[in-house]
Amino acid sequence: MLILECPYCGVKAEETELHAGGEAHIKRFGPGSSDDDFETYLFQRENPMGVHFERWRHVNGCGKWFHAARSTTTLEVFGTYSARTFEPPQEIKDKITARLPGWSWRDLS
């Protein structure tokens, strides 16, 4: 069972109280973008074994979207953080490095 702490209301929410929102930190390419950019945006998602960054919504709760960093293999949660950021905060990256030196995810490491 996955338990994530919602950074907005501080509740340690169990998975059934949340809704998964897919990969985090994706830049949207919409109307007017090139076909390649649009295809990459729409289909090219990470599916890692290990460190992953995701969006979650505290749907049966405060209703806010937030980000979570976790491991897809061990279900270890490295932390959750605000949705209002383009990349994970340094503190979260440091925590991951402490647990899994040499990790990488897209262009982050």
Partner: peptide, 10 residues
């Protein structure tokens, strides 16, 4: 106060 679900509803 706790906002959550009761079985299947908010």
């Amino acid at each position: 106060v706790r906002r959550t679900r009761l079985a299947q509803v908010a």
